[in-house]
Nucleic acid binder design. Structure first.
Lengths: 177, 177
DNA sequence: TGTCTCATGTAAGGGGTTACATGATTCC
DNA sequence: GGAATCATGTAACCCCTTACATGAGACA
């Protein structure tokens, strides 16, 4: 569902091709899609049918032809409506908690190894996120307020991983000391 | 995939019916499934085929017959192997961040309303989680260590929502002041 | 009378994933 | 020569979700 609004949102920033959208979605961590083609091209077709986007074919000599998609007035107002809707609460889906739940089967060393590898994974993820944000699409907005909003989003993501890191460190101390 | 191990894990605590599993999965927040029947009964069939669980039909006079599932040795060792695997990092899928990303379309009042309703939703969720944990399956383990592990899981969930609450309050101050 | 709990299952559909297909250019 | 990037699309599959179906007893 919301991949539609994600696409409309990105296009509201500027007209882009499906390929461009794919790249943005792929390396924006708070967009929960693989960014692989099937969905994007399918969604663009549907959005066209609904009149939320229009496309223009650009022939290029060197590269293959592009379809540049532009959001319409109807698309923008649909996006605005969606923005105002009551937000859903996220569900905390952490596969690690599931794994941890039955880890009393493991001995002390195995448990310690599990905790260490999770800590390493999170640390790595945190570094990646920080790197991404420097060059990512969501660094500088069109208005001051948008820049501020995007900075809040980035803060949320980073601090979520930092919070998890704190938790796993504390948990390790409590369990393994 | 991991619903299989989740089922094995729960059954490792004690033998149960599909119906019991459904209820536990439904009201355990870190198990990311609807807990609705299709998957559970299907998974139990597959687990039977693989020899990870066995079932015994119990006829009852007043209620419908039950199938009580018990985890086998093979099932337990599969569960143990899975527990040792390198944990995946969770992805922070928060629909609210997606909604926020294009909220520069909204005016100040609409934005304030959006922030308030998210804060309320999270507050409500936090209360629910705290209530759940008091009576939930994952309150007291079989061993001291298991009790400690489950308490760490519960702490993770609660503090994740608390962290989100802190963030939204701070974000509101920064954006709307 | 109607809804809730116990108890097991089926049907249909949606959303997402990976992999495949094509074809040109650029870079090592 | 082989891999990566640009660019659009298709095919197959998996996981999960909602809704439906049945049928009995309990409770208001």
């Amino acid at each position: 569902m919301s991949i539609d609004f994600t696409i409309l949102g990105i296009l509201s920033y500027k007209p882009l091709t499906g390929y461009d959208l794919k790249k943005i979605i792929q390396d924006t961590s708070f967009m929960p899609w693989s960014g692989n083609n099937n969905q994007i091209y399918k969604a663009l077709l549907e959005l066209s049918k609904k009149g939320y986007v229009t496309s223009q074919v650009m022939h290029q000599e060197q590269s293959p032809s592009k379809k540049i998609y532009t959001v319409t007035g109807a698309g923008l107002s649909a996006l605005g409506e969606w923005s105002k809707a009551t937000p859903e609460v996220f569900e905390s889906k952490k596969p690690f908690l599931l794994q941890l739940a039955w880890s009393d089967l493991l001995n002390r060393d195995e448990l310690a190894k599990l905790f260490n590898s999770y800590e390493e994974e999170i640390t790595g993820q945190l570094l990646m996120e920080k790197a991404k944000q420097k060059e990512g699409f969501f660094s500088k907005g069109r208005t001051k307020r948008e820049t501020k909003i995007w900075s809040l989003i980035n803060t949320n993501i980073i601090s979520t991983y930092e919070h998890e890191l704190d938790w796993i460190k504390q948990a390790g101390k409590e369990l393994l000391s």
